[in-house]
Design a protein around this nucleic acid. Sequence first.
DNA 1: TCTTTGTTGACCAGAGTGGTCAATTTCAGT
DNA 2: ACTGAAATTGACCACTCTGGTCAACAAAGA
Lengths: 219, 219
Amino acid sequence: MQEIMPGIEPEKRDRILNAAIEEFATFPYEKASTNHIVAKAGISKGLLFHYFGSKQELYEQLVGFVIEKMYRSIMDRIDWNESDLFERLKQIALIKMEVQQAYPHLFDFLLKVISNQHLAKAAEMIEFYKGYGLDFAQVSQDIYTRNVDYGKFRDPATTREAVNIVRWSLEKYGEELLAQMSSDTPLDLAQAAVSMNHYMDILKQSFYKPSLEQEGHAV
Amino acid sequence: MQEIMPGIEPEKRDRILNAAIEEFATFPYEKASTNHIVAKAGISKGLLFHYFGSKQELYEQLVGFVIEKMYRSIMDRIDWNESDLFERLKQIALIKMEVQQAYPHLFDFLLKVISNQHLAKAAEMIEFYKGYGLDFAQVSQDIYTRNVDYGKFRDPATTREAVNIVRWSLEKYGEELLAQMSSDTPLDLAQAAVSMNHYMDILKQSFYKPSLEQEGHAV
DNA sequence: TCTTTGTTGACCAGAGTGGTCAATTTCAGT
DNA sequence: ACTGAAATTGACCACTCTGGTCAACAAAGA
């Protein structure tokens, strides 16, 4: 749980981290090349091994960094008092996009780590982090249960399906926005929030009970 | 447009094709290894080069095969007389899953080819196939326009968004079903169709005009 | 028996691998 | 200006893996 690469200039640190994250997100552990990483980060081979000692240690520190980053991004920004599920899922989607902007391949990498496509060591580490309260399974359960008002839904019999549809829509929409970006302007999060609100309004009308004054949404 | 690997036993042919497709779907062209392919297919190195001559030619024949396979799967099975958009999108989703069953990584590979993550040669070939009427951009446009009855939608102002939500839901649902399978039973397409119908009914109620007798759905 | 076709795997030169280390540059403290 | 420590370099190493070759063998029909 100690700081990664302490005392280095943050700009260079992020360059190295992003290069490594991208490499490990793109290739399985064995095919990920330290040569590629140093080339992409614009540093010498020696420096990388000066910081991390070995490829394996680099990978492990990276896993730690990514888990903590993702966990803190969620925990620091989610408003657990917000009882509207649509708003909460929108918050998640926006957080995800924000992280993706600073570390474009962080999520891909994290997915690979969690689904155990890399070293068996990764599973150990995830278990280890649970001891510190960083439990993604728990978080993703909390998102749908903690302080959520399911009474707003029109039909209890189809609430489960409605929640899935909302989740799928937000995920796919986020993916498509991120895919569009790349060479474009670096992604307007405010704009994304607006159009997500638009979709959420449509879905609320479909799945929530009708009400004379429509639920207001905070931007 | 000639047959791929003519005169070989179909079972061995598919073993080789699937091994190659998986390798090229997993790695970029340069890192895809012919050694891996022959090992996974259970044949000798010499035989692969006896059939294809070189790695590049193997790749190109593979692109051709995959494009034709996907195109024909769609064209042979889609009912262009079906004017209900929901039914049509469901058909697409089911076709996709059916192909995925015979060639599990075909779609990943095709996506990589189309989005030009491999050789520049691939773009050429896609252009070449357009000359024979195999145009994916055209097909994916037809799906949403050719003989579709948009009069069923309740609110013209949000029809575009409704279509997106339906599309996203089907895509995500299909992805989650495929992710679940793997070691499980090899995926029950009939079962998938049933639960997709369930989701489609919910979405029809949300986005279609109310009608006394609900639209029947063909299974 | 001969020819053709399918099939093997040891072998090759070259590229790429993770990792090392002596030599340099950078720079704060005096 | 001098010093010592820290940051940084890249040539180098032993090793693995690469795409591709080819002489040899197996099977089978003529």
